[in-house]
Amino acid sequence: MEVRTIKVFTTVDNINLHTQVVDMSMTYGQQFGPTYLDGADVTKIKPHNSHEGKTFYVLPNDDTLRVEAFEYYHTTDPSFLGRYMSALNHTKKWKYPQVNGLTSIKWADNNCYLATALLTLQQIELKFNPPALQDAYYRARAGEAANFCALILAYCNKTVGELGDVRETMSYLFQHANLDSCKRVLNVVCKTCGQQQTTLKGVEAVMYMGTLSYEQFKKGVQIPCTCGKQATKYLVQQESPFVMMSAPPAQYELKHGTFTCASEYTGNYQCGHYKHITSKETLYCIDGALLTKSSEYKGPITDVFYKENSYTTTIK
């Protein structure tokens, strides 16, 4: 009895394709271990004539594949690729409408935090270190965002349907971005203890939790000093293409032309909904596939993004 075979390709990165001759009487799992086709788990399936010449994702289970996976995804987590594939199996079914010149995501599976993050990423200057993220990001900007969303979920250790947080998501993504040249110098002034300067680099240099107003941050924000008295913390120097200011959701007025974009969060910790506000020729609110415009805006804002380049204080 002759062994019926077909020729397929296996890959971990969709760049390096490895030619395989597979036995049609055995499952993919018996031949390769966990195997995925377009995100779908085909591990328990036997090869079919229609699979001839198709590319299958496999887990990096030998040295060659491990090197290829690390170079593309910059992670050695053995569960990463499987999590990416199972997320992709959902995100490829989502709709990605162009809204006001940006790629958004039609609401499904509690994905409003991903839509808000995706919209924000198209408006701030950011370059990702893992080629996987950078490639998928370019495709997302062009309207094909399924891979990018699935990668975000995998890097953030999230599953489809789980509630997510924009600030946490951005923080994970910033860790995989090139923020080497970003720098922030802060000064804390206390009447009792004097003053202390701190220099922050990388992710810490672009994120701040405690106030939404970048102007206020430049002037000074009140913080408790270690001595128990009130101290003032203010920005001395900022070198970065953008800054992200966050605070627990509270009524906040966004003035046209003073910011790049913002995240609105309605609801409580267990259950809520994100919308995205962007400042173009007027203010726009993007909620999944829905767009509304207004000249002014007041609502429960939790993150505001500002364009920056270089700032030095005039406070002496």
Rank of each mutant, 00 (worst) to 15 (best):
V8S: 03
V8E: 04
F9R: 10
V12P: 11
N14R: 13
I15K: 15
L17G: 02
T19E: 14
Q20T: 09
V22H: 01
T27V: 11
Y28A: 05
G29K: 10
Q30N: 00
Q31H: 11
P34D: 12
Y36N: 02
V42I: 12
H48Q: 10
H48K: 14
N49G: 11
S50F: 12
H51C: 03
G53D: 10
T55D: 04
T55A: 09
L65G: 13
Y72W: 06
T76G: 13
D77N: 08
P78L: 11
M85T: 09
S86V: 12
Y96H: 04
Y96N: 04
Q98C: 10
V99S: 10
S104G: 13
I105L: 03
K106R: 00
D109T: 08
C112F: 07
Y113C: 09
A115C: 11
A115L: 01
A117N: 00
L121I: 09
Q122H: 04
I124G: 02
L126G: 08
K127Y: 08
K127F: 08
N129C: 06
N129D: 08
A136P: 04
Y137N: 03
E144I: 05
E144G: 06
A145R: 02
A145V: 00
N147D: 15
N147H: 13
I152G: 04
A154R: 03
T159S: 13
S171D: 10
Y172N: 14
Q175V: 00
S181Y: 09
C182P: 01
K183H: 10
V189K: 13
C190P: 05
K191Y: 11
T192H: 06
C193K: 07
C193Y: 02
T198G: 01
K201A: 09
M207A: 05
G210I: 00
Y214A: 00
K218W: 06
Q222M: 12
T226M: 10
C227T: 03
C227G: 01
A231M: 02
A231C: 07
P241H: 05
S246D: 05
A247I: 01
F259T: 01
F259C: 00
T266W: 03
I277Q: 10
L283T: 08
L283P: 02
I286T: 15
E296V: 13
K298P: 00
V304I: 08
E308W: 01
E308Q: 08
T313F: 15
K316Y: 15
